[in-house]
Simulated scan of single mutants.
Amino acid sequence: MKTELATTRARRPARAEGQGLRLGEAAYQEIKRKIVSNEFAPNYQLTEGRLAELLGMSRTPVHEALVRLEKEGLIENIPRHGMRVLPISAHEMLEIYQVLTALESAAIELIVRRPDAADAVASLRKEIDAMDRASEAQDMAAWAAADARFHRKFFELCGNGHLMQIGLASREQVDRARMLTLPMRDTTIRSNQAHRELVRLMERGDAELAALSHKKHRERVTVELTEILRRFQGIGL
């Protein structure tokens, strides 16, 4: 009996620690989601206690989440004032887009060279169809969701686990800027056309030309989005 009791007592801290880790991860994921989606917009500020109340958690997992998010450059922790969501720098976005363009181009080449490339490209085409429908309905939220899925699939379908991990992590900051600037962008039709041209080249099996076509499209979009950010940086973007 004593042995069983001792074993039970020994297990309790492990369970509590495990629960704490899960809560910390849950707090991290939810706060990050709100930042990336711009529900917590640039310069949004909230005390740690109020954030814990909002998430229905104690302050400990929330504090752990905020430490992680500060290291990732999404927020700053201000003593006695909680967290502040950092503005999106046009220069930082330019650098991230440059890296992401290279990663996506590499992923595209890998997809084209896969034995099951036809299935992968068909999956990409479905997202372009969804973008076309959203553009026709002038539903920018639906278009942005389909566009995000399209770009994520480059990494999910490339067959290189390391490239996928790095690429998807880079996309989080880009998605944040893209959602913020979406109402100020030109028509989405041009992007849809560029996506279709990319898929056509991938179907043709021309890996290098497909990567080059995508690179040119991303460079154009990079100029457009960073210019919007630069234009509005003075008012907190």
Score class of each variant (00 low, 15 high):
137 A>Q: 10
150 F>P: 01
225 L>S: 05
165 Q>H: 03
155 F>P: 08
225 L>K: 05
200 R>G: 04
118 A>F: 00
208 E>M: 07
148 A>C: 05
130 A>V: 00
54 L>Q: 07
230 R>A: 08
32 K>E: 07
77 N>Y: 08
219 E>N: 08
178 R>A: 14
160 N>G: 07
46 L>E: 07
170 S>H: 07
80 R>V: 13
229 L>A: 12
109 E>C: 04
70 E>M: 12
82 G>C: 15
67 V>K: 14
21 L>W: 02
11 R>S: 14
179 M>V: 09
180 L>R: 05
104 E>K: 08
233 Q>V: 04
168 L>M: 15
107 A>V: 10
36 V>H: 12
210 A>K: 05
25 E>C: 02
56 G>I: 13
140 M>I: 11
111 I>Q: 01
128 I>Y: 03
26 A>L: 10
94 L>E: 13
72 E>V: 10
85 V>D: 09
148 A>V: 03
41 A>N: 05
97 Y>D: 05
196 R>G: 04
9 R>H: 01
180 L>Y: 07
108 I>P: 05
187 T>R: 02
172 E>A: 09
34 K>V: 06
21 L>E: 14
129 D>R: 03
228 I>D: 09
215 K>D: 13
214 H>M: 06
191 S>L: 11
34 K>F: 11
96 I>K: 13
190 R>N: 03
206 D>S: 13
37 S>F: 09
23 L>R: 11
212 L>C: 02
80 R>P: 03
191 S>Y: 12
118 A>D: 12
108 I>K: 04
112 V>E: 02
236 G>D: 11
104 E>V: 04
122 A>Y: 04
219 E>M: 06
224 E>W: 04
12 R>S: 09
62 V>R: 12
140 M>F: 08
54 L>F: 06
203 E>L: 09
162 H>E: 09
138 Q>M: 10
167 G>L: 10
222 T>R: 09
159 G>F: 10
230 R>D: 04
46 L>P: 00
15 R>V: 14
16 A>R: 14
46 L>I: 15
59 R>C: 08
22 R>D: 00
220 R>W: 04
25 E>W: 02
204 R>E: 15
78 I>K: 15
66 L>E: 12
78 I>F: 04
17 E>P: 00
119 D>V: 00
229 L>S: 15
186 D>F: 03
92 E>T: 03
212 L>S: 15
100 L>K: 03
148 A>N: 06
44 Y>A: 09
2 K>S: 07
200 R>D: 14
166 I>S: 03
136 E>G: 00
38 N>M: 13
47 T>N: 10
138 Q>H: 12
73 G>R: 10
149 R>L: 12
124 L>F: 06
111 I>W: 00
65 A>R: 02
118 A>W: 01
97 Y>M: 15
3 T>D: 00
196 R>L: 06
218 R>I: 12
138 Q>Y: 03
19 Q>Y: 06
84 R>D: 15
